[in-house]
Amino acid sequence: MKYNELGKSDIKVSEIGFGCMSLGTDHAVNKALLLKALDNGINFFDTADLYQQGQNEVTLGKAFKGLREKVYLATKVGNQWRPDGSGWYWNPSKDYILAAVESSLQRLQTDYIDLYQLHGGTIDDPIEETIEAFELLKQQGKIKQYGISSIRPNVIREYSSRSAISSVMLQYSLLDRRPEETVVPLLAQNQVGILARGSLAQGLLAGKAPKAYLEHSAQNVQHAAETIHALVADKYNAAEVAIRFALQQPGITSAILGIRTENQLKDALAAAHAAPLSEEQLMALRASIPAHTYALHR
């Protein structure tokens, strides 16, 4: 397993991160899968207080009790549940973040969070106030680093210039290369790590039947899948090609993969150990489907 520094921090995360959102509700089953991932070199586990109304954080706390120093835990904040549990609303206020972190720490059974991320964000947020909250938590030792989870270039630009974020989590795959236009170069320039999610594009790059995706027609998606299939020989499977493509984009620190089953974990680990794609293969993949740009929030 390869490990990369997260931005300018001293955190070195596995290039395959375990996305915990897909985990079920059986804590014992989850623990077995999470520990197997750890045993095989994955040290970065990403969750959010939103997932399963906090139970996703609880499952990580139970799994890694007594193993805290062996893992990097990342969680997210900003979506506040309504008291009746009927849904949530956006709240990036300083007061809410300072209160929410205490609940996350309790559920995770830890006294610090390695990476605390704003779970979204708009250009109309009280950004300075949000940054103040993260900086205060860092001073207090309750978080080690902070970042944002966003696909909005204008929001990413503001946090890159006004804060000490270590990372941005965003969607990136062969079928979603929108970050390449301005976001990836900006983050590279500012030494901010990129956590790529959605690398399999809802499974469309790993064997699922083609369908329209973002601005791509089903026909274009099929062409990209066929190009991947042409690269699949004894050396790779389709998922490995798609994940390697994302990982080999300059600036990508880790691919965060949603893992729920042992087979999915096996595929994720296979991608980590697969041979890098050649420049010719990467060029063929890029040429197989057009790269779009963000239409909104520029």
Rank of each mutant, 00 (worst) to 15 (best):
S14M: 06
E15L: 05
L23H: 07
H27K: 06
A28Q: 11
L35M: 02
K36S: 06
I42Y: 09
I42F: 08
N43I: 01
F45L: 08
T47K: 07
A48H: 02
A48F: 02
D49L: 02
L50Q: 08
G54V: 09
V58Q: 11
K70H: 14
K76R: 14
N79W: 15
N79P: 00
Y89C: 04
P92R: 01
K94G: 02
I97Y: 01
A100I: 01
A100C: 02
V101E: 02
E102K: 11
T110Q: 06
A133G: 03
A133R: 01
F134N: 11
E135L: 07
L136V: 04
L137C: 14
K138W: 13
Q140H: 09
Q145M: 13
I148N: 05
S150Q: 03
E158G: 00
R162G: 05
R162T: 06
S163F: 12
S166N: 13
V168P: 07
L170K: 10
Y172I: 15
L174R: 11
R177N: 06
R177Q: 15
V183K: 00
V183N: 04
P185E: 05
A188L: 14
N190C: 08
L195N: 13
G198D: 13
G198M: 12
G203M: 08
L204H: 12
K211R: 15
Y213M: 10
E215R: 12
S217T: 15
A218T: 00
Q219K: 14
T227M: 14
H229I: 03
A230R: 14
V232D: 13
A233G: 15
Y236R: 01
V241W: 01
A255E: 07
I259N: 07
R260H: 03
E262I: 01
A275T: 07
I289G: 10
P290I: 04
H292M: 01
H292N: 05
